[in-house]
């Protein structure tokens, strides 16, 4: 798994719970290094072991941990460059939802060896959607749940999201868009300098 994905797990643990907690996770996972490097590739087994250890150390259900990581990716101040890249997806939350189908391609533009989930947005009616996501590892559903809730806030949209099962290799999410202009949301200047 790409270092950026592993780094997201480590970043979440370090930022939220501190360095000592990460050291405990790392030690329980039996990782033979102190830090994941964002620009290196790792065997999947390290990712899985680190995740299991984090779930145990933090006493969090795996789905809750995944969802928290998704929220962290969008809201953490240090990850502002990532939030900006996501906001390139569209001018409104609805545009953004539609842009998710392009996300894997966008990721490849940014980093050719980064494998992002392949997503398909099915429109049930004007304001409800079903998002199917397929990734090389289980757990993309809850990550997206946290990430998309945070993105809805970011755009100032009011949306109701929940997991809606697994179909074959796809993890599914249901999205009910209640109000696209619920609040001001967070500012995004296209020409703003990345943090």
């Amino acid at each position: 798994m790409h270092g950026l994905v592993n780094r997201a797990l480590q970043g979440f643990v370090v930022t939220t719970y501190g360095r000592e907690t990460w050291d405990e996770v790392r030690s329980q996972a039996g990782l033979p290094f102190t830090d994941f490097e964002a620009m290196l590739q790792y065997e999947d087994v390290y990712t899985l072991q680190a995740f299991d250890a984090a779930s145990r150390v933090l006493h969090k259900h795996p789905n809750v941990l995944l969802e928290d990581i998704g929220t962290y990716l969008v809201t953490d101040a240090e990850l502002e460059p990532l939030r900006r890249l996501l906001r390139f997806g569209g001018n409104t939350f609805l545009d953004f939802l539609h842009s998710l189908e392009e996300l894997a391609e966008r990721g490849r533009i940014a980093m050719p060896d980064l494998e992002l989930p392949i997503m398909l947005l099915e429109e049930e009616d004007q304001s409800s959607f079903r998002l199917r996501a397929r990734w090389s590892m289980p757990g993309i559903g809850p990550i997206l749940l946290g990430g998309l809730r945070a993105m809805a806030d970011d755009y100032g949209a009011l949306a109701f999201l929940h997991l809606s099962g697994i179909e074959g290799q796809d993890e599914c999410l249901h999205i009910q868009l209640l109000d696209t202009k619920h609040s001001a949301g967070r500012r995004f200047d296209l020409g703003g300098t990345p943090a």
């Binding site: 460059p81 001018n91 545009d95 966008r106 200047d189 296209l190």
Partner: peptide, 28 residues
């Protein structure tokens, strides 16, 4: 940056926004 342009200021066929995206992604 100088003109304060937004996503709405470009035609969907214009690749400028993708160029900007690539520019920022490369910097990161």
């Amino acid at each position: 940056a100088e003109f304060g342009l937004t996503l709405n200021d470009f035609s969907p066929c214009d690749q400028t926004v993708e160029l900007l995206y690539l520019h920022e992604a490369n910097q990161s």
